[in-house]
Amino acid sequence: MAGASKNSRTTVTTQKFICPDCGGEIVMKTICDNGRVRNIAECSKCKRTERRPKDFK
């Protein structure tokens, strides 16, 4: 009896974050600053940056 593999049973969901000020989409960017890799969230419309998408509220 052959079943589906574990990886094929998982669902992939992506969450879109919306900027509360302008309504633009928030995208995550990876930058290298002083030898450190940092992730920042940036609104594509108003160019506001925060540490993570939750900080826009």
Rank of each mutant, 00 (worst) to 15 (best):
residue 1 M to N: 13
residue 1 M to W: 06
residue 2 A to H: 05
residue 2 A to Y: 02
residue 2 A to G: 11
residue 2 A to N: 01
residue 3 G to R: 13
residue 3 G to A: 10
residue 4 A to G: 06
residue 5 S to I: 14
residue 5 S to C: 11
residue 6 K to R: 13
residue 6 K to M: 13
residue 7 N to M: 14
residue 7 N to T: 15
residue 9 R to T: 13
residue 9 R to P: 03
residue 10 T to A: 11
residue 10 T to N: 11
residue 10 T to D: 06
residue 10 T to R: 10
residue 11 T to F: 09
residue 11 T to H: 05
residue 12 V to W: 01
residue 13 T to D: 05
residue 13 T to H: 10
residue 13 T to G: 01
residue 13 T to N: 08
residue 13 T to W: 06
residue 14 T to M: 05
residue 15 Q to D: 15
residue 15 Q to T: 15
residue 15 Q to H: 14
residue 15 Q to W: 09
residue 16 K to P: 00
residue 16 K to W: 09
residue 17 F to V: 08
residue 17 F to A: 12
residue 17 F to T: 03
residue 17 F to P: 05
residue 17 F to E: 02
residue 18 I to P: 00
residue 18 I to T: 11
residue 18 I to E: 06
residue 18 I to V: 14
residue 18 I to H: 03
residue 19 C to D: 07
residue 19 C to R: 04
residue 19 C to T: 07
residue 20 P to E: 14
residue 20 P to C: 02
residue 20 P to K: 08
residue 20 P to N: 07
residue 20 P to V: 10
residue 21 D to Q: 09
residue 21 D to Y: 00
residue 21 D to A: 09
residue 21 D to L: 07
residue 21 D to V: 05
residue 22 C to Y: 08
residue 23 G to D: 02
residue 23 G to F: 11
residue 23 G to I: 07
residue 24 G to H: 07
residue 25 E to P: 05
residue 25 E to C: 06
residue 25 E to F: 15
residue 25 E to K: 08
residue 26 I to S: 00
residue 26 I to E: 00
residue 26 I to P: 00
residue 27 V to E: 03
residue 27 V to N: 09
residue 27 V to K: 11
residue 27 V to F: 06
residue 27 V to G: 03
residue 28 M to L: 09
residue 28 M to W: 08
residue 30 T to E: 12
residue 30 T to A: 12
residue 31 I to T: 00
residue 32 C to H: 10
residue 33 D to H: 06
residue 34 N to F: 13
residue 34 N to M: 15
residue 34 N to C: 10
residue 36 R to F: 13
residue 36 R to E: 06
residue 38 R to A: 10
residue 39 N to Y: 12
residue 40 I to A: 01
residue 40 I to W: 04
residue 40 I to T: 07
residue 41 A to G: 03
residue 41 A to M: 02
residue 42 E to H: 03
residue 42 E to Y: 03
residue 42 E to V: 14
residue 42 E to S: 12
residue 44 S to F: 00
residue 44 S to K: 14
residue 44 S to I: 13
residue 45 K to H: 07
residue 45 K to V: 10
residue 46 C to F: 01
residue 46 C to R: 01
residue 46 C to D: 00
residue 46 C to M: 14
residue 48 R to M: 03
residue 48 R to N: 09
residue 48 R to S: 11
residue 49 T to L: 04
residue 49 T to N: 04
residue 49 T to H: 00
residue 50 E to A: 08
residue 51 R to W: 13
residue 51 R to C: 10
residue 51 R to P: 00
residue 52 R to D: 08
residue 52 R to M: 08
residue 52 R to C: 15
residue 52 R to E: 05
residue 53 P to W: 02
residue 53 P to T: 05
residue 54 K to Y: 05
residue 54 K to R: 14
residue 54 K to V: 10
residue 55 D to K: 03
residue 55 D to N: 04
residue 55 D to V: 00
residue 55 D to F: 11
residue 56 F to V: 03
residue 56 F to Q: 05
residue 56 F to I: 01
residue 56 F to A: 02
residue 57 K to T: 15
residue 57 K to P: 04
